[in-house]
Design a protein around this nucleic acid. Structure first.
Ligand SMILES: [Mn+2]
Ligand SMILES: [Mn+2]
Ligand SMILES: [Mn+2]
Ligand SMILES: [Mn+2]
Lengths: 244, 244
DNA sequence: TTGGTAATTTAGTTGAGACTAAACATAGCG
DNA sequence: CGCTATGTTTAGTCTCAACTAAATTACCAA
């Protein structure tokens, strides 16, 4: 095999970050405009235009001038590889170094560009082929498929419903620290007690502890509805569960 | 505090690698010449000259034209920080991922440029403040001091002497794989049995197994003489090596 | 003392990736 | 239907880090 090596030397750190940004912007709404891309990358618009031209020349995307940009198969493949690297690093740093969940994104943002196939294989072995990172984001498989499961958020739950937290926003450290103090990280069992009218706050229990949170925050916490397996009297201790 | 941040944005990956190279070349013989540096970095001589000019302008080294180069305090500090990063990554990858000893150097060569203070602190905690990496290379301390202990090599031992392997060359994967099959990695207990005349091979036991190795290889294996402590009362207590 | 050789530096070029200023397209509105 | 605001691209510049070719220096041997 190996006719088309992934290691075009043209794929620099910068190119990787652009492709990843385009991929995620594409996921949350159609054609990606220059201004959106420039803002996300923290560069001026002409810088984005010029990078787009290079990426188009390299076959990573198609560019319709003044309209927007769309990744090719080749571009998506690389974007997914970087996202896989990012989330594997997050999972590994959390597992092996106990790096707090709010610092994972920043570290992985640099490390994602530095993960050899060999190191990746070691991580996968040690982590037991993980499917999700500590934020609950799905880890793309090595062949480029992603779990596209869509979860409801806390505001979607009916009053009194039980659920398990499955995914939280990953890029806001302050928010993540707050969620940690509330015990509202992936794996937590919650019960939605009530919601105040007029868009008011929600009351819920997280692993048995009662908490009050705002609507907007609740809308960002994705959950899997259903009671946790009420097996024998288990302590709802702080054990971390892994799922398959 | 924080008047002089380490994060001059002028310290790029490339600058870090040059400073590290100059530091290690400086250790193994006086003034560093342009050609030596260029060869080590795998670049043409004019590229080295031009980088040297920039490093001199940044206060990282002093350059005597046509003569050579010498790191300043500022330059040495950064070189030692990168070397610390390199060896910490090696120790960590070996510990947490069981990365084979012959692959550590290549991985650390990239990762050394991507180690935040926070991540470094986590590693130090998990590894228990390690003083040496898996090759036996000393890890510079955070404040820039290095254990400069000098060990004899296997050829320096008298016949019949016992010793413990302390340090092996770290940059040659094939050599490291060979040493691993021989059981001649740091920590191994050896006894030098005999040496053949006319610069012939040496016979020794490594953790009890008899091996024959060439003179040249033996000269690259650094050891600490003395019987291992497992033998009762073989020798009076040996004192720790002091540093300079 | 001088001339040849090897090492080093200078000069000039390239490409990546950023920037600002200016030109240009698109779409919304009168 | 055309004007204008907004967004996008073009044009030109900058720095970093590499290159080749040419000039310069150091050193050594005759
Ligand atoms: Mn990144
Ligand atoms: Mn994540
Ligand atoms: Mn390096
Ligand atoms: Mn080492």
């Amino acid at each position: 095999m190996h006719l088309m090596s992934r290691w075009d030397p043209e794929v620099s750190r910068s190119v990787e970050d652009y492709l990843k940004a385009i991929y995620t912007l594409q996921e949350s709404g159609g054609a990606v405009r220059t201004s959106t891309l420039a803002e996300r990358m923290g560069v001026a618009a002409p810088s984005a235009t010029s990078m787009v031209a290079r990426l188009a020349a390299g076959g990573f995307l198609r560019h319709t001038p003044y309209r927007g940009v769309e990744l090719t198969e080749k571009g998506s493949r690389i974007a997914l590889e970087i996202i896989r690297h990012h989330r594997l690093w997050e999972a590994f740093l959390h597992h092996a170094l106990d790096v707090p969940i709010d610092q994972l994104n920043e570290e992985a943002e640099r490390l994602e560009h530095v993960l050899s196939d060999e190191l990746e294989a070691h991580m996968v072995r040690v982590l037991g082929d993980p499917t999700h990172d500590p934020h609950g984001d799905p880890i793309p498989s090595a062949d480029g498929t992603v779990d596209s499961a869509v979860y409801p958020n806390v505001t979607d739950l009916p009053d009194g419903a039980s659920a398990t937290v499955r995914r939280v926003p990953s890029e806001d450290p302050a928010l993540l620290r707050y969620l940690k103090t509330l015990g509202l990280l992936p794996g937590a069992s919650i019960v939605l007690r009530r919601r105040e009218p007029f868009h008011g706050p929600l009351t819920l229990t997280a692993d048995g502890v009662e908490r009050v949170i705002g609507r907007e925050l609740a809308g960002q916490i994705l959950v899997e509805p259903g009671s946790p397996p009420e097996l024998p009297r288990a302590h709802p201790a702080k054990q971390r569960r892994r799922r398959g």
